[in-house]
């Protein structure tokens, strides 16, 4: 399964990179979303995949099939942060479009004091 997951992550990264290199900001944001997903998957993959495992203890502290809980905690925060980042980027993009009237990133070149 690790192989399949690695390929999936690779494809996600490739797509994300391709989108990041576009001039349209919408695509840029989508690229960032894809890459952050892929990064979460890398972390997840690093925990070692255990089918039907759980990161929970029984009442007495014993466990049956344990998956690594730490990457999960990391990913959980990463997902929420990713959401915040995406929202921020979208706000930025919206404002950018409002002010410049274009979606083209190359227009961003002339910004401050020239």
């Amino acid at each position: 399964m690790e192989l399949i997951l690695a390929i999936l992550i690779g494809v996600l990264f490739a797509a994300g990179t391709y989108l990041l290199l576009r001039r349209s900001i919408v695509k840029l944001v989508m690229g960032i979303v894809l890459i952050s997903y892929a990064t979460n998957l890398i972390l997840f993959n690093a925990s070692g995949l255990v089918q039907n495992g759980l990161a929970f203890l029984n009442k007495d502290g014993s466990y049956d099939k344990m998956t690594d809980p730490l990457p999960q905690a990391l990913i959980l925060t990463a997902i929420v942060i990713g959401f915040g980042l995406t929202a921020f980027l979208l706000a930025l993009k919206y404002k950018f479009f409002k002010i410049t009237g274009t979606d083209d990133l190359d227009q961003l070149k002339e910004t401050d004091a020239s």
Binding site: F44, G53, L54, T67, L76, F83, L90
Partner: peptide, 30 residues
């Protein structure tokens, strides 16, 4: 599938919210 239920729930909700914001913003963009 691989035992991260918390993550699955969070991912689904965050994903949905992201999409909602995407849709809201996109309708105003070219």
């Amino acid at each position: 599938t691989y035992g991260a239920i918390d993550l699955a729930i969070t991912q689904i909700i965050a994903d949905t919210l992201t999409m909602i914001i995407f849709v809201i913003v996109l309708q105003k963009l070219p």
